[in-house]
Design a protein around this nucleic acid. Structure first.
Lengths: 358, 358
DNA sequence: CATCTCCATTCATACGTATTAAGTAGCGTG
DNA sequence: CACGCTACTTAATACGTATGAATGGAGATG
């Protein structure tokens, strides 16, 4: 029973009836398929006229049901969305993804229901909702490994923004080149005379952190410096980056420069700002400091910390291009791309103090 | 012929086969329809297990073709997305929409393909893509009237953010109360002694502009002032709001205060900033000025112009709540809500200069 | 034991479109 | 006139799901 009040929209059958032809003919005229040029001009006109008359518009659902693809790309973020600063961090990725999705003629499906659900799982409800889309762009730091694994196994087409690894199989990703960027940062510090460089890393052992650590080690090696394992420290809470601790590191380890891995919220920036305001340690006079990445919203009134920045929008765009490529392939194979980061000189590093080894 | 390399997505038939039941049973278990509680627990478990095993997920197209719900809400913006400042204006709406969509357990479908297409039409390709979603939130200033009309006629469930009218039928919307806000602004100026208030309105005759004009007229009436039609002027280009023109208005019409309707890009802010920098006219000493709304990105370093601001995120959330409400109704009727704007005092209005009538 | 009720499941069908193979003219040719 | 050929058109089917009607079986009732 069709809903009473709600007028049914005209279908090809209606047009066919009005034009005195069959539904198949209507389909041929409207969608202009292969056999479309076989249609007599008079018939075509009649059909088009009837279509215009009745105000026909094709039913997408039926169309994509028939075709298998529905021209949807998904975007799923392994992160809670409500902290606004975190949102600000991911927003540029979203911009890039959306822009390129549009350019490719797809629509974008944001999996917010999953994101907000209590268990935050792709497989919530027994089904993999991601598959609503033809393919999917994934994002976020604290990935669920099992789910990622499962996705790879099912060979659902997806691209991760950020390098990700998985037990078996290969993940397609568009990653930032943290290794090179961190290594370059070490080189720059060494050029300024620093030899005791503290690296404050995240506690969790995720790919971005591993890449930075590798860059740190490679940078030291390239500079001909030994790695002092005591100078690699886990930073549980960004607030621990306090003037007291910095003074301690300088005093006890002879540290002259600090590399710190940023968080995706504003806590690191808050800690840095607090230190600057406190003025008990001066940067870069007492100690150089650089951020291994870029916090969410870098507004002009903040101090211009030395750092490197990710081309976040570009990564988003590239991820979509890659995904569309995967969808086009008959035999898709995983793809990996790393994009270089941009060094931002800033004003928080300077020459190493002389005689610090004394 | 199914694509060779790519494994075909499992359907309910596949699950049925695996679990040794019929497709209908699978449908009942998965989508939990009316007869869903009739299903034996053992069967349900078997089906769910098989679904998880095969990585099943429902086919959106098929589901919406059948008329079922697919728990998707759409968001369509009648605006080009690429100017970033314009994006910034619409972003808070998007935030609100997304947050509430998630809270309601829906996913959000961004119709970017349509937005970016050359002809920028909902009905591009002869199909109404919006119907992929259960319902849709619409947004944007330069609406295509015919399309809005068509949507209403087809009575597709949607909610507009911003008051919109249509020839026949009623549009559901969540609008800002421009009438009251503008009227209040006039009242405030009158309280400060202003009687010659220039209203610079947009050229196009859209609802937001009409509402502001109505607020302007009502505000004057409430203050016991006559409306001088010469004081209502169309502002074709925000750049026309220049020091020269302001001086002209002061000199020729005895204007002591200006109300200006903002654009959704940064052009008005640029014009205001240019005037401030030029310093040929001082605000509010020479002339009071207030903005009837709020430009996209209001960063702290900008001057604190007197204005009123829209609760954009809240409007987005309310639109989604309304839409979900519409979807729940058996016989949906249109709903309209207006949300008050917040007066931001700022520093660009002041007492009217004395003796200006002389 | 025949009949009835109730429950769990299945059958059959419809949704609107695209496509392929099959059909029907019309018409010239041998 | 039988034949094939071209030029159109249509019948039939599949896509994956939801759902009302139908089925079968178990148990209760008379």
């Amino acid at each position: 029973m069709p809903p009473q009040g709600r007028r049914r929209r005209p279908t090809q059958v209606d047009i066919a009836r009005a034009a005195g032809v069959s539904q198949a003919t209507v389909s041929l005229v409207i969608s202009g398929g292969a056999a479309s040029d076989q249609i007599a001009e008079s018939t075509r006109q009649a059909v088009l006229a009837a279509a215009a008359e009745l105000g026909y518009s094709a039913n997408v659902a039926a169309r994509s049901l028939k075709g298998g693809r529905n021209h949807l790309l998904g975007l799923y973020t392994f992160e809670p969305v409500f902290p606004t600063d975190q949102r600000d961090f991911y927003y540029p990725f979203l911009l890039g993804v959306e822009e390129e999705t549009a350019a490719q003629g797809y629509d974008l499906l944001l999996f917010s229901s999953v994101t907000s659900a209590a268990d935050r799982s792709i497989y919530a409800g027994g089904a993999n909702r991601l598959k609503l889309a033809d393919g999917c762009v994934l994002l976020g730091r604290n990935v669920r490994r099992e789910e990622l694994n499962a996705l790879v196994q099912e060979d659902f087409p997806f691209v991760f923004i950020g390098r990700r690894e998985v037990e078996e199989g290969e993940v397609s990703y568009v990653g930032a080149d943290y290794v090179a960027a961190t290594s370059a940062m070490v080189a720059e510090l060494h050029r300024l005379g620093h030899e005791r460089i503290l690296y404050l890393r995240a506690i969790e052992d995720t790919e971005p952190t591993r890449d930075r650590e590798r860059g740190y080690r490679e940078g030291l090696a390239a500079a001909g410096l030994e790695v002092d394992e005591r100078l690699i420290q886990g930073l549980a809470d960004p607030a621990d980056l306090s003037a007291e601790h910095v003074q301690h590191w300088i005093g006890s380890y002879g540290v002259t420069a600090i590399l710190v891995e940023p968080t995706e919220d504003n806590r690191l920036v808050d800690a840095l700002t607090a230190m600057t305001d406190g003025a008990r340690v001066r940067f870069p006079e007492d100690c150089s400091i650089a951020v291994l990445g870029e916090p969410p919203s870098w507004t002009p009134e903040l101090r211009d910390w030395t750092r490197f920045s990710l081309p976040r929008a570009e990564m988003g765009r590239e991820a979509v291009r890659m995904l569309v490529g995967l969808l086009g392939d008959a035999q898709p194979t995983s793809r990996q791309v790393t994009i270089p980061c941009a060094f931002v000189p800033g004003d928080s590093i300077g020459p190493a103090p002389r005689g610090d080894r004394a």
